[in-house]
Design a protein around this nucleic acid. Structure first.
Lengths: 204, 204
DNA sequence: AGATTGAACGTTTTATTGATTATTCAGAAA
DNA sequence: TTTCTGAATAATCAATAAAACGTTCAATCT
């Protein structure tokens, strides 16, 4: 089956070049097929449709991102708070730069989000697993306190929604976004509540 | 000048009916003028353009909302936390119902947001003033602790962005959104940190 | 004078048409 | 048999022309 897989990735490579060069809409299945020295009809033995090729490209890229997030989440010796910080910043910066540097990425993100609403949910759920691990480790270390890690992770994701697709929501610069994320993170971790024990102790 | 003002509001009323009935795009200036028994050209003595009539309608509605928020923010005897809760829920519910019950409201919101990006910023800034008051009162009462109320208000607004135009971001039901907002509020107020003095004391 | 009109102007929307495109599938090639 | 092709199809897109629209302003009315 390695033959099939290699053809599949040949198609993905050809489509990636076309999509990032001319855009998703301006690329035809016939062109991708020609690049792979095959007929358009044959593409459908490897992908159900054009959109699925785009999804495969996005997913390939996303796997790299996930690996990075996973690495950050388990950095040994680092406080859970710092790891949460780095995780959220990695998320923000990756998306920002992706959309900033690759003008065609925006179109692809829009098309997939529009035609495959579940895809975004799948990404959220996947990242939530990493977040849950991180939260539970933080709890074990006595840094965090909450009752349900899954629910807490959902709430953190809701609170940082603005930083997930930064360019879709606002026209803020990266540094302004980073300042805001820093502030939201601070809120999330420390809360608005009156001073806590540790601080009180250090003041006294 | 009361004559001019009453004509102005006559125009707003006529446009409101048309916009909510047929939509902003399908309503012509000529129609609004006819409803007011005047010529199209005459509308421009009262409004710079069509979009400004839409803005006037939106602002009129928004003033009522602001008044409600202001009332909630200063409810006497109520803990600041509860008032913050009610404030954010009022915000969510108003927008949700507005877009849910008035199919044409979505179009108007979209058009204004697109052609007048500053308008959304103005609303945010206006509401932030109320939020700052509430936060500072909470600090005075010893409920909240933070260094800069303005910045903290900005951060809260960033964290609840998802609930500001609920239907634009997701297809969640109102009750699911409410549950999420409840969770985010809890995060914001209490944080992820280890148990605080008061809780520790009550446990001991 | 100031207030109002409505025809005129340039732009935007709509309708229509023709061309392109994604996808399918009967059959050819391997 | 399994793999692949490419013409056929139905859906989408692009181009165009016509109609409608927002806005302006010289002329008219009060």
């Amino acid at each position: 089956m390695s033959g099939k897989d290699s053809i599949r990735s040949q198609i993905v490579e050809a489509a990636k070049k076309r999509f990032s060069h001319f855009g998703y809409g301006k690329t035809t299945m016939a062109e991708v097929a020609t690049d792979c020295s095959m007929s358009p009809g044959n593409l459908y033995r490897f992908f159900p449709g054009k959109l699925d090729i785009a999804e495969a490209i996005a997913t390939e890229d996303y796997q790299r991102h996930l690996k990075e997030l996973g690495k950050i989440a388990v950095t040994p010796g680092s406080p859970a708070r710092d790891r949460l910080h780095d995780l959220l910043f990695e998320e923000l910066r990756r998306t920002y730069h992706k959309l900033d540097k690759e003008p065609r990425a925006y179109e692809m993100a829009t098309v997939i989000a529009h035609e495959r609403p579940e895809y975004a949910n799948w990404m959220l759920a996947t990242e939530r697993k990493i977040l849950v691990e991180l939260l539970e480790d933080g709890k074990r270390r006595g840094e965090f306190s909450f009752s349900d890690a899954e629910v807490t992770a959902e709430m953190i994701q809701a609170a940082v929604m603005k930083f997930r697709y930064p360019q879709l929501w606002s026209k803020l610069t990266l540094s302004k976004l980073e300042r805001e994320l820093e502030g939201v993170l601070h809120l999330i971790v420390d809360g608005l509540h009156a001073p806590r024990m540790t601080e009180r102790a250090s003041v006294a």
